[in-house]
Design a protein around this nucleic acid. Sequence first.
DNA 1: ATCCCGAGGG
DNA 2: CCCTCTGGAT
Length: 215
Amino acid sequence: MTKKERFAFVISYFEQHAPNAETELMYDNPYQLLVAVILSAQCTDKRVNMTTPAIFERYPDVEALSTATFDELFPLIRSISYPNNKTKHLIGMAQMVIDDFHGDIPSTVPELIKLPGVGRKTANVITSVVHHQPNMAVDTHVFRVSARIGLTTNAKTPLQTELQLLKYIPKEKVHVAHHWLILHGRYICVARNPKCGECGLRPACKYYQQITKAQ
DNA sequence: ATCCCGAGGG
DNA sequence: CCCTCTGGAT
């Protein structure tokens, strides 16, 4: 099976059997999405969603967040990963948006990456979800699932995965493909003991071919 | 013990 | 390239 055929199978499969999410990041606007994605690093969506309502109530917009103090915000973030870093990042992000971007959340990857706490993955999520730009955010799920299936070969960094995926996924499908891979990784192609028995991608999956061949 | 929609710094 | 940050679920 060529790589092109593999991509075609995966895209076709997901178009007919789109995975549905049990929990997803909650947000009502770009500001809330940016905060939620910054908080989501090495943390489940469910846990992020437990913290964001209080944050959005206390800091309803980026200007309010820019005036927050560390001691005020920290307790609201205390129960998720890296609360120290994330508290500093959120306040720094809000201040930079106010000072350097006139209070508007930037809409391009190079601008977003300048914000504290915002790396390539987060920038790709914002531009993809909010502005429908054909950018592929590569998180731990997309990285693992793509490698297992064989959509990527020898990808050692998220950037390599991103570039290899963009080469074969039509631009208009990048956004939805990102979501497919995330959800597939979260519920089926999990890191430990992937549920190959429930996976419809078996005919196109390199990992499944290997483990069945080894029997 | 390993993983979760990573980022920043060396 | 590496390391550190660092809480909760499984």
